[in-house]
């Protein structure tokens, strides 16, 4: 009897300890919904499967994927301009040095535009070799102008020079895996000024972090080993990652219909959003980007709209 009670207590202690470790509590006040814009359609200001988002000092760039175009809005949702120069399926995108880098999933390249929509250059082409892509989904650019690309079907992240020549890769080409450094359909990347790379390792339900030399850490559920869930700090497919103005990490937690915010080390801070089509609700949050003033913009895929949130 004593043994059973002791065993139960020990089990309970272990269970509570694990819960504490793996289900962190909210650490900050969080965010409040401000506004939303967009409906389904082909007209200006409407969307069909919006996927990616990038924010400049004053504008929001949205990849309106099934309409094969980029739509540009001010911070209140007013449409400023549209461009669609031979894009296939534009996905996640990033602004670097006043240039817009668009991951084009169908054309297997990175299409670079100026912010007025003039096509400047294309980087990469279809394939499995170095500097080639099979379903490029996300792109990031570091201070030196080097490119990081989430190469979805090739199960890898490629690190390229500005001209597209290959430097190295993370993950094994066409071979998915769940151990550290391996990928399972990566969809997005973000890089800090000091070259720390964050990867949305989408179907492993985790974020992986790398220095320029090596794997650093991962987070998302127990041991970050492809265990999904809707607890704080867990993911159900993480499709986008962005670095906030204070260096915190924002993630779109796709099937959990929310955005989660972490410290740079992966400690959970807060989350916002729930399933639905009302104010502050999402039908699959697919991408997130932050403005310099701390506002957060989220692509609400199924509702074909963009949402704006701000810190409380």
């Amino acid at each position: 009897m004593n043994y059973k009670i002791r065993l139960t207590l020990v089990s309970l202690f272990i269970f509570i300890t694990l819960l504490y470790i793996w289900i962190p509590s909210t650490k900050e006040a969080g965010y409040i919904f401000v506004t939303a814009w967009g409906t389904q359609g082909k007209k200006p200001g409407q969307f069909r499967d919006p996927i990616g988002i990038a924010v400049s000092d004053s504008e929001v760039f949205v990849s309106d994927s099934r309409n094969a175009r980029i739509q540009v809005f001010d911070f209140f949702g007013n449409l400023n301009r549209i461009f669609s120069l031979k894009l296939g399926r534009p996905m996640n995108l990033i602004i670097h040095n006043n240039e817009l880098y668009v991951a084009d999933y169908w054309n297997d390249n990175i299409h670079v535009f100026n912010l007025n929509g003039k096509s400047l250059r294309k980087i990469g082409n279809a394939g499995t070799g170095k500097g080639e892509f099979n379903g490029i989904s996300g792109v990031a650019v570091n201070e030196k102008g080097e490119i990081f690309a989430a190469d979805f079907y090739n199960q890898r992240i490629q690190h390229l020079r500005a001209d597209g020549s290959f430097i190295k890769q993370w993950g094994n080409t066409k071979k998915k895996g769940m151990w550290a450094g391996e990928m399972n359909y990566p969809t997005d990347v973000a890089v800090t000024k000091d070259d720390i790379l964050y990867v949305a390792d989408s179907y492993n339900d985790r974020i992986q972090v790398f220095s320029s030399e090596s794997f650093l850490r991962k987070w998302g559920g127990p041991f970050a080993l492809n265990i999904s869930g809707n607890f704080n700090g867990w993911f159900a497919t993480v499709t986008s990652v962005a670095i906030g103005p204070e260096g915190n990490i924002f993630t779109s937690d796709f099937y959990n219909n929310r955005v989660q915010k972490f410290t740079a080390n992966g400690n959970f801070l807060s989350a916002f959003g729930e399933k639905g089509n009302g104010a502050g609700q999402f039908d699959r949050a697919v991408a997130v980007a932050t403005a310099p003033n701390g506002s957060v913009f989220v692509v609400d895929l199924g509702n074909n709209r963009i949402q704006k949130w701000q810190p409380l």
Binding site: I51, G135, F152, S202, T239
Partner: peptide, 11 residues
């Protein structure tokens, strides 16, 4: 049910 999937199969 993910757009990466649906675009992938179309492609």
């Amino acid at each position: 049910d993910c757009p990466f999937c649906s675009f992938g199969i179309e492609k």
